[in-house]
Design a protein around this nucleic acid. Sequence first.
DNA 1: GGATGCGTATTGTATATACAACTTTTCCCT
DNA 2: AGGGAAAAGTTGTATATACAATACGCATCC
Lengths: 245, 245
Amino acid sequence: MDDLRPEKLYEQVKTYLRTGIAAGTWKAGEKIPSEFELMDKLGASRMTVHRALRELSAEGVLLRVQGAGSFVQPPAPRSPLLEIHDIAEDITRRGHVHRAQVLALDSRPAGAEIAVEFSPRPRAKLFYSEILHFENEIPVQLEERYVSPAFAPDYLAQDFTAITPNRYLQSIEPPHEVEHIIHAGQPDARIQKLLQLAAHEPCLCLLRRTWAKAGPATRSLLTHPGSRYSLGSRYKLADFNARPG
Amino acid sequence: MDDLRPEKLYEQVKTYLRTGIAAGTWKAGEKIPSEFELMDKLGASRMTVHRALRELSAEGVLLRVQGAGSFVQPPAPRSPLLEIHDIAEDITRRGHVHRAQVLALDSRPAGAEIAVEFSPRPRAKLFYSEILHFENEIPVQLEERYVSPAFAPDYLAQDFTAITPNRYLQSIEPPHEVEHIIHAGQPDARIQKLLQLAAHEPCLCLLRRTWAKAGPATRSLLTHPGSRYSLGSRYKLADFNARPG
DNA sequence: GGATGCGTATTGTATATACAACTTTTCCCT
DNA sequence: AGGGAAAAGTTGTATATACAATACGCATCC
C-alpha cells in the first residue's frame, strides 16, 4: 500500500523543514533559512522552495513576513472536538454490553447528491451498510454508511457484528480530513421504530464525512435517540505566543 | 477598512470561478473550463490560472483530476465548531443581518447544581444573561449564560446588543479549557415560543463551559431550532509520519 | 540625538517554457 | 464489431527570469 514513487521535490522541501522543526533545529518563533539559502542547500529552484514555504504557511506551520523572513509558528491548538471514536469502545468502556445488528450490507447506486460527493461521475456505485448498535440491548445508534469502493474494496466481506465499520476503516488508512455536521431532527417512522423512540422524541444526527489522501472515503449518518444520548468533548487550549521579535 | 489595492491576479481568477459557481454557471459535479481556456478568457498565464485552481482545490471548491479536468465540488458547510465562534460573526460572514435581544441581565443565585460548578458555596450569586439572537429577524439561538463575577466583574455593565457576551468574555481572557456537550431536546413552552418553533420541532442544545486559569469562568446553554440550524466542523488531521528515509 | 533616506535582504506575484503523468477520444487493424 | 495502439486534451511539477512590495539596518544630515 505504500507509495513507492519518489516524493515530489516540493514535498521533500516541506518534509525537510517539518522534520527540522520537529527535531528542534528551529524552534517556535525562530527564523528559518531564507528561500535563497534553501535553494542552495536543497538544490531546488526558488519557485519550488517558495511553493513549499507557502503551503507550510497555509498549514499554519510557518509565519511568513514579506521583507523579513519565515518564522516557525507555535503548534496550533488542535482541538479534537469530535474525534473519530468507536461506539463499541465507548460502550464497553462504560462497562456496558455492545451488540451490533447488520440491517443492510451491499453495493448500490447512491442518490445523485450523495454520489457526486464521491465522484464526478454521478452513477457510480457505492458500498452501503446499515447497522443498529445496542447498549445493554437498548438501541443507541443507527449507522447508515456509504463507503468508496476504491478506498475499501473488501468492505462487503467484513463481519460487522465482530468489528465496527469505523474500526475496520481506520485500520485501512486513518482519514486525512474529517467533517462533522450535527443537527437535531425528527425521525421518520422507520427510524422511530428501530430506535424505539417515544412519540415526538427528537433524535441527534451526526453526519461524518472523511477523506483519505486519494479522495473521499466515507459518509456516515449516525442517528441517536435524543433523550438517551449526547456528544461531548473537553480540551485544553494551547497558549498563544506572539510574533517573533 | 476596505482594501483598496487591486486584487491580485490569481485572486481575480478565484473570484471569477467562485462567483460563477455561486451563480450556477457551473453546478456541482460539472466540469469547468480547462486551464488553457481560462488563460485565453482571463488573459492570465497558465501558472497563474493553475495556482488559482490549485488553491480552490485545496479549499474544497474544486476537485481536480489529472488528465480529465476540474469539477465543481458540492458545497461543504464548514462552521468551525471546534473553536469558540461568535454567532454574530458567523451570521455577518454569511452576509446576513444579526440582531441581539437582551431578555435578562442580572445577578442571581443559581440552582444548586449549577452554582456548585463555580464555587463550593452553594448559595453564591452568579451573573446571568439571557439573549435571543436573530438572523435576518428569524430567531436562531437562545443563549442562557452564567458568568463568574470573579472572572468578569463588569459583566452587567455591558451592552450586549452591541457586542456579544462571547466576544466580550474573550477580550478579558481567552479560556484555558473548554467543554462542549451536545444533545437534541424537546423545548419547553417558553423556549418553543421564543424560537418560534413548530409543534414538536426538536432543538439542538449546546452546553459550553469554559475555565480560566483561575477557575470556572462561564457556563452557556445555547439552544438552536433544530430545523433551521446545524453545527459543523471540518479539519485536516496532522501527519505525524516523520519516518527516516 | 533624532529624523530621513537609501541600500540590501527577503518574500510576493506574474510570466514563459518544458516535460511528465494521466484520461479520454479517435482511429486503424484484425 | 472488438481490441488495441496512437493521438489529443488536461492537469502536475520544475525551472529561470523579472519585477514589486515590505522590513530593517546603516549612513547621512540637520
